[in-house]
């Protein structure tokens, strides 16, 4: 009956255990939400990203930037195990979430995603009403009472700065909203599950400048309650919203023509943009590369 469990489940068990954090890898800092060590992501035999070392502090915005194909989205998706959905993907190395190995055998990806929410590149509201979209997370978590759901939906929409625009049409279909509204609805949907962390994968890439500005303002607000990680291809956006920035780049294997991403530099955003330590970072920031 091994066929019943997905291929991923089998693969999970084979990789992480041997890479459990060894005693000499340094103390695990309490105020860090995520800590990674030697994190690599593979698609089949192909290593898409290698050797990522990150420590993500609580209630700050951390931006992952870099040229396209550098694996920043892949890294982000390994933080709530969305990569599990790709049949050939597997993760190597250690990824600690509040001290717990996210890729330990017993960890249920579903439980992980309820604590670590995600907002996607393209707004992807469900073809349901606005209310049902926001209430989706709480409902699958077992909340059935109408009053409680109402409160959660209202609070989430307030936090996502959408309440005033939609309070009169909660039962209207979500697919009729503008792109910017849809993306804020997706943020409200993620918040409604009361997550600990929000992962945002280029949340503004499909939006116009005005909608982008609203989302950026919103992120500054949300930072008070959530730890946020954002992938962006827009350096100005990273500079505007983030506290810390990780710069990734890709190296090309001249024999196979495959690109493997790697982390170049991770520091305070101000440092990255004013005084980067690595030449590659500087070239990218100043527009000489990428």
């Amino acid at each position: 009956m091994a066929d019943l469990t997905t291929a991923i489940a089998v693969k999970e068990s084979t990789l992480t255990t041997e890479h459990a954090l060894s005693p000499d890898s340094g103390p695990v800092s309490d105020d860090m939400v995520f800590q990674t060590r030697d994190l690599s992501v593979y698609y089949g035999d192909f290593r898409a990203v290698r050797d990522v070392e990150l420590a993500i502090p609580e209630r700050q915005i951390t931006a992952l930037i870099g040229p396209s194909g550098c694996g920043k989205s892949t890294v982000l998706r390994s933080f709530n195990r969305m990569n599990d959905l790709i049949p050939t993907a597997r993760v190597d190395g250690t990824l600690l979430y509040r001290g717990v190995d996210l890729y330990a055998d017993r960890v249920d990806p579903v439980e992980v995603r309820r604590r670590i929410g995600m907002v996607f590149q393209k707004p992807n509201p469900f073809p349901k009403s606005i209310f049902d979209n926001v209430a989706y997370g709480p409902r699958i978590a077992g909340i059935r009472k109408k009053g409680e759901l109402n409160d959660i939906v209202e609070a989430s929409l307030h936090k996502a700065a959408l309440w005033d625009e939609v309070k009169d049409r909660l039962s209207a279909s979500a697919t009729g909203m503008s792109g910017g509204q849809q993306q804020r609805l997706c943020i409200a949907r993620a918040i409604a599950s009361s997550p600990d962390v929000l992962l945002m994968d280029e949340p503004c890439s499909a939006l116009d400048p005005i909608a982008t500005a609203r989302i950026e303002d919103l992120m500054a607000e949300l930072k008070n309650d959530y730890t946020i990680m954002i992938v962006t291809h827009n350096m100005q956006q990273a500079a505007r919203v983030s506290d810390r920035t990780a710069f990734f780049t890709a190296e090309v294997d001249i024999h196979t023509d495959q690109r493997t991403g790697l982390l170049v530099e991770y520091d305070l955003t101000t440092t990255i943009f004013s005084n980067p330590a690595d030449e590659r970072t500087e070239n990218y920031i100043t527009g000489r590369f990428g």
């Binding site: 800092s29 309490d30 105020d31 420590a55 502090p57 609580e58 209630r59 700050q60 979430y97 509040r98 001290g99 717990v100 190995d101 996210l102 330990a104 017993r106 960890v107 249920d108 439980e111 992980v112 604590r115 600990d196 506290d243 305070l268």
Partner: peptide
């Protein structure tokens, strides 16, 4: 790592059981 604002109550420690 100096600018971490953490004046709220620390969250309950996360265990592997909770994530299972």
């Amino acid at each position: 790592m100096t600018d971490v604002i953490d004046d709220s109550i620390p969250p309950p420690p996360l265990t592997l059981d909770l994530l299972a």
